[in-house]
Amino acid sequence: MIRHIVMWRVAGQSASERRETATRVKTAFESLRGLIPGLLGLDVGLDVSEVDYACDAVLVADFESRAALDAYANHPEHLRVRAALSGMRQTRHQVDYYAG
């Protein structure tokens, strides 16, 4: 199994605007459940610490294999979500690793 973790600092002029944007990110990625072959589980969380160095949202997704993760990158539903969220992020960090 490969775990895919992505963290975003989202755009917004205020904490409430960033929270609204982060919520849109969460909703958009959660819509992928059941649509991506090889996606075993997906969790999206929003930061509650509110420290200035924290990211606003995190995605943790488990894939059955590296091939499934690679296919996800170009899957039409994933591309739809990416397009819908275009321009909403300031920074993005990613880690992929073999788990379990």
Rank of each mutant, 00 (worst) to 15 (best):
M1R: 12
M1Q: 12
I2W: 08
H4K: 02
I5E: 09
V6Q: 06
M7I: 02
M7K: 03
M7H: 04
M7G: 04
R9K: 15
R9H: 11
V10K: 13
V10Q: 11
V10R: 12
G12E: 00
G12T: 00
Q13F: 03
Q13D: 15
S16A: 15
S16P: 00
E17P: 01
E17Y: 05
R18T: 03
R18G: 00
R18I: 01
R18M: 03
R19V: 04
E20M: 09
T21S: 15
A22V: 05
T23F: 06
T23Y: 05
R24K: 14
R24W: 03
K26I: 01
K26W: 01
K26L: 01
K26N: 02
T27L: 06
A28I: 11
E30Y: 03
R33N: 11
L35E: 13
I36V: 13
I36P: 05
P37A: 08
P37Q: 09
G38N: 04
G38M: 07
L39G: 08
L40N: 13
L40W: 08
G41R: 14
L42F: 08
L42K: 10
D43C: 02
D43F: 10
V44Q: 07
V44N: 02
V44W: 07
G45M: 03
G45P: 05
D47M: 09
D47C: 09
D47L: 07
V48L: 13
E50N: 14
E50W: 13
V51K: 14
Y53F: 14
Y53P: 08
Y53M: 10
A54F: 05
C55I: 00
D56P: 00
A57K: 02
V58L: 11
V58I: 15
L59H: 01
L59K: 03
A61H: 08
A61E: 02
A61F: 12
F63M: 06
R66D: 12
R66G: 10
A67N: 04
A67V: 05
A68I: 10
L69M: 14
A71E: 15
Y72V: 01
Y72A: 03
N74Y: 09
N74F: 08
H75K: 05
H75F: 11
H75C: 07
H78D: 06
H78Q: 08
L79Q: 13
V81L: 00
A83K: 14
A83S: 09
A84T: 08
A84E: 13
A84G: 11
L85K: 10
L85S: 02
L85M: 09
S86N: 15
S86C: 07
G87A: 08
M88G: 01
R89Y: 00
Q90C: 10
Q90L: 13
R92Q: 01
Q94T: 14
V95I: 14
D96I: 06
D96F: 08
Y97F: 15
Y98C: 05
Y98Q: 08
Y98F: 11
A99E: 07
G100I: 11
